Amino acid sequence: MLQELLAAAAATGSAGLLYVASAARIVKQYERGVVFRLGRLHGDVRRPGFNLVVPGVDRLRKVNMQIVTMPVPAQEGITRDNVTVRVDAVVYFKVVDPAAAIVNVEDYRFAVSQMAQTSLRSIIGKSELDDLLSNREKLNQGLELMIDSPAVEWGVTIDRVEIKDVSLPDTMKRSMARQAEADRERRARLINADAEYQASKKLAQAAHQMADTPSALQLRLLQTVMAVAAEKNSTLVLPIPVELLRFLEKGGQPPAERSAEAVEDADEKVPRAVEQ
């Protein structure tokens, strides 16, 4: 009798262990469990840890609650200013309602992916090329709003959307490069013209100053001669005033000859040059 009781207890224990093993479910920290009993949603969402379900009756679906990073394939479209571009993006989203993510949509990942592609094409058609290249923050916000509106019913929230790259045709790239080059050349010419204008004003002031003091002009001439004479392979022709040569010639003659020549050469001027 005792052996029969022990055998029955062992059988019952084995059956209990087998039941617990088949009914036990482990939900990880970043997951939530949704239980379907005979095909119908049953109870609340199961929390992380050890959970029990009825074997053969209940079915536990686990939903990942982590943020999902989903790349959006490059979409080709025509902007509002008639430029063909290819734009790709990335979507960050997560599940906030596990039951709605399982019940309301067949595959929430695929649904978010298709909605992101459709919204990206719509954004391309509504935007201009300059906005796609320089005003991406505003476009990201608009794209996020377009994807998030239907995703709320799927138990999904969009964390953020980022436009990664905008690909342009080669002809458009060359046109933009020529435009940038022309703009830089225009600015360079304006800078040179402004520099010439400022230099001309300074030169005019210097000319007025030299007109008041002729010796300053002579000093400036000597400075120019020194600058040119620094080159060893150059020939310098220096003009010398005739009055200076006459003074030197008169210095080497007797007083009588000086007075006679002074009378003869009073109205004559002979230009000379010294070659160095």
Rank of each mutant, 00 (worst) to 15 (best):
V237W: 06
G77E: 08
E128L: 00
A151V: 09
V263A: 13
A21Q: 06
A211L: 07
R258N: 15
A195F: 02
M172T: 11
Q276C: 07
D81N: 06
V35G: 04
L222D: 11
V91M: 09
V35T: 04
P169M: 07
Q223P: 00
V45M: 07
R47F: 02
M176F: 09
R178L: 14
R178P: 02
E31M: 00
V34Y: 00
R59E: 15
L41S: 12
I158R: 02
E261C: 05
Q209N: 04
T171K: 08
G251M: 09
L52V: 15
D107M: 12
G33D: 03
R59S: 14
I123E: 10
T118M: 13
R46E: 10
V152T: 13
P214E: 11
E185M: 08
A227S: 14
V105L: 04
R80G: 07
R189N: 06
A193R: 03
K126D: 14
M172C: 00
L248C: 12
E196P: 00
D81K: 02
R246C: 02
N192R: 05
S134C: 04
Q276E: 06
R272W: 06
A229P: 09
A207D: 01
G251F: 05
A100C: 01
T157D: 11
V166E: 05
A273Q: 06
D131P: 02
R174M: 07
V54Y: 06
T79K: 05
E31A: 00
A216M: 12
Q253W: 03
A89D: 02
E162P: 01
E243D: 15
L133H: 08
G252N: 09
K202H: 05
Y92M: 03
R32W: 00
E76T: 14
Y19D: 09
A193H: 02
R184P: 08
A188H: 03
V20D: 05
A182I: 07
L133F: 06
L5N: 08
L60C: 14
A204Y: 01
R258Q: 15
A230W: 01
K250H: 12
A7P: 00
P271Y: 01
E144N: 09
V152S: 15
A116P: 14
G142I: 03
V87A: 00
D107L: 14
E257K: 12
D81F: 01
A262M: 12
A11I: 13
